[in-house]
């Protein structure tokens, strides 16, 4: 249908028991396609902020925003899809049972991805290493795809995107 794509929402909610369950429950109850959801406290300890990524068309996305808005615990819904934002996602990748040559390849990958922002090797063993990446969600997707192709034994853990509106309007 019209415009199926990833969209981002920043959601200010009451920092109370059950609010995360209520927000997450909306997506499963109404069959909305949730990609990622992160939550943490803000400068006010009684307010949490969520960064939500959904895949949806225009009409469904409008509905999602309205549904979120009707919740008593939701203080504010911000659509980040088309505004300049800073967005990062934390990712750890543990590469295991690798040869010295493979290790060198891993370092090369880290080096090239470093052109996109923060990524480095944070731990290393005889035949293994851990990469820490804080790139955009999309760049992390590309990193994952490459790591999976290149190495056989990997563990990946991702934190979901966190976003904040930009000060300078050119950022993204």
């Amino acid at each position: 249908m019209n415009n199926l794509k990833n969209r981002w929402i920043a959601l200010y909610v009451e920092n109370e028991v059950g609010v995360l369950a209520k927000v997450a429950g909306l997506f499963s109850a109404k069959s909305y396609n949730l990609q990622s959801l992160t939550v943490g406290t803000t400068e006010h300890e009684d307010i949490s902020r969520m960064t939500i990524c959904v895949t949806s068309d225009d009409i469904t996305f409008e509905q999602i925003k309205k549904q979120l808005n009707t919740m008593v615990e939701v203080i504010k819904v911000m659509d980040l899809t088309n505004v300049p934002i800073h967005m990062k996602e934390i990712l750890f990748a543990k590469i295991k049972r690798i040869t010295a040559e493979e290790k060198a390849e891993a370092f090369r990958i880290v080096e090239v991805f470093a052109a996109s922002g923060h990524i480095r090797t944070i731990d290393i063993g005889e035949d293994s290493m851990i990469i820490e990446s804080a790139l955009t969600e999309r760049r992390n997707n590309e990193l994952c795809a490459l790591l999976r192709k290149t190495f056989k034994h990997i563990d990946i853990v991702r934190g979901g995107a966190v976003a904040m509106e930009a000060i300078s309007t050119s950022c993204r």
Partner: peptide, 16 residues
């Protein structure tokens, strides 16, 4: 009960 009724109430909470 708050969890069970979350999707069918306008507002629900346990007083803590």
């Amino acid at each position: 009960i708050v969890g069970m009724t979350r999707s069918v109430v306008k507002y629900g909470v346990t007083v803590r």
